[in-house]
Design a protein around this nucleic acid. Structure first.
Lengths: 332, 332
DNA sequence: CTGTTAGCGCCTTCAC
DNA sequence: GTGAAGGCGCTAACAG
């Protein structure tokens, strides 16, 4: 910056001003400085900027997994909502582990992010302490906790799962099995399982019939294996609801393999409305959630919190319930 | 850090040492300092660290899209390969646009990353200038350019597509259509199309029969529409090769809708070996590429380049060709 | 509209 | 094994 200043015949401070849009500087001086910058290929050092201005321009987003189309859409939503704000995203994958999440919170906090977006509502005690201590705007997404840390954009996974069980019951299915999440700490998966159990009670459909899928990779394959285990224990199942469309897809393939006709012999339902659910044969009934919208809203409300400059005590705190919809297709 | 130092009865410099593993400091002092740090909840400021130590700990990864399962796997591979190195990833999505890529390069370079991973080999002139000027290790992935900027982990998309056309020809298909990428600047898609055209010549299968899918969202739906347009122009097609599994999946659904039996009436092939390709009915033939491995290798070789401290002129430069495989399933 | 001064929070370098 | 001085590249705050 000193070099540029010298070449342009101004002080470093003026170069610094030329780089910002709001600063008071004459058109002529700015033009001359920008010309020098372009000519010598100067790239301002944002690290030094961060230190001096005490603004990192970072937002942290922590999601369970990168290779899940639902969360990938959410990340896209966050990314899009940050465009034009000068904010950049630091992305972390927790692998559904609260401990890994805590670790990521601790390390990313060193980057002095301005805000943080977290999937879910289950955090370790230290993670909660770190977050509240840091005093930055938080948005919890993909869940609707009773005791939110700050802002929330999500939905009740239990309610969403309940809705699907009611759909199955409405269509006349009575012996409904459930393929649960392969990851014990997948709280959203667990909530869906809870919703399934509650709905069974509500409709008087007897005790739960459930198994858990095995660990990825191969969520689809694992869904098929899980169906096998379900049928072994409860051969008279007439419907299976899976914690995700991927597992449901595997379950459906297993049906094809066994010569079972969906939904005549057994109905199959998934969760998430992945593109894949429109691509099975028959097409799969599922629960659609607003993956992209969750990210976009979370980003927008985080930015709003960052731009708010009134009394911190009266900062608006969004608690948004995003909708979910049972998509009834031919598989049920 | 000053506060911690005062509480521990040492100088700030000693606290700084206690935070690093390699520094020379007595066990007792370090233990005392760490205890204070834990008690007061001190979080070191990595921004200041970056400025003083002149190491950002950042690696930039620029990929075309986040919601593409192939690239998501690559990102996962990069992420995993960075674990334990102290490096963090800044992720950018270029939306298949060289201009957007240039913009991202310019803005992320301000963060003073230590290395950069780029999908593809088509960059604007300014982007190339910025990169070479920055003088950092680069890894180009998902392509195998003739004029690499630095390191490469990828494969020839044209060759991979050629292999699939040869597979179709081997199976006796003669009138092979192609559904190209919806994005004009998708160079990998364009390379696949080139491979298709070359293979037609090699096998004497007449002039290309190709259409392009329309813009996402709805890559699957667009594949179906594209098949419709292909059949309108060339009603006697006996096989269709799609630039991605998503489009192929849509094409297959369109066949179901039209009462065409795959592969008896028409064969369908995709590209990418997405999970979805194992989930169609019949299962889809496709070209498998090592999405995760590409990311993992790119990350590993970037780290190697960063750790290398010999003569810059003799730094090892990896140029890795990752394999691709035609997966023959029932759809062809 | 432009310049000067004094840091931002940490680490490098050197001294002991 | 520990401390003091100085500076990383930039900007806030003030002065003019």
């Amino acid at each position: 910056m000193q070099d540029v200043a010298r070449l342009a015949g101004v002080s470093a401070m003026t170069v610094s001003r030329a780089l910002r849009s709001d600063a008071s500087i004459s058109q002529a001086t700015r033009a001359r400085i920008l010309e020098v910058i372009e000519r010598v290929g100067y790239i301002p050092d944002q690290t030094a900027n961060m230190l001096a201005s005490r603004r990192s321009g970072f937002v942290v987003a922590l999601i369970p997994a990168l290779n899940n189309s639902n969360f990938a859409d959410t990340v896209r939503g966050i990314n899009d909502s940050l465009a034009g704000t000068g904010l950049q995203m630091i992305l972390g994958a927790t692998d559904y582990s609260p401990e890994r999440e805590e670790e990521l919170i601790a390390t990313t906090l060193r980057r002095r992010p301005e805000g943080i977006i977290l999937a879910g509502s289950k955090h370790t005690a230290r993670a909660r302490r770190l977050l509240t201590h840091a005093g930055l705007p938080i948005v919890q997404i993909w869940d609707f906790p009773d005791d939110p840390l700050d802002q929330v954009v999500g939905f009740s996974n239990a309610d969403a799962a309940r809705a699907m069980v009611h759909h199955l019951a409405d269509r006349g299915f009575r012996r409904i099995g459930f393929v649960g999440s392969s990851v014990p700490s997948d709280t959203r998966g667990f909530e869906r399982q809870r919703g399934y159990c509650e709905a069974l009670v509500e409709r008087g459909l007897g005790p739960p019939r459930l198994v858990n899928a095995a660990k990825p990779p191969g969520s689809i394959e694992q869904g098929g294996l899980a169906l096998g285990r379900l049928l072994e224990r409860w051969p008279d199942l007439d419907a299976v609801f899976c914690v995700s469309d991927l597992a449901a897809c595997g379950a459906m393939m297993e049906c094809h393999r066994r010569g079972m006709v969906v939904p005549r012999d057994i109905a199959i339902a998934g969760f998430g409305d992945f593109e894949i659910s429109r691509c099975t044969h028959p097409r799969m009934s599922t629960v659609a959630v607003e993956s992209y919208e969750i990210g976009a809203l979370a980003g927008r409300h985080l930015v709003a919190a960052l731009e708010y400059d009134g009394d911190p005590a009266t900062r608006p705190v969004a608690r948004i319930r995003t909708p979910f919809t049972v998509i009834a297709r031919e598989s049920t």
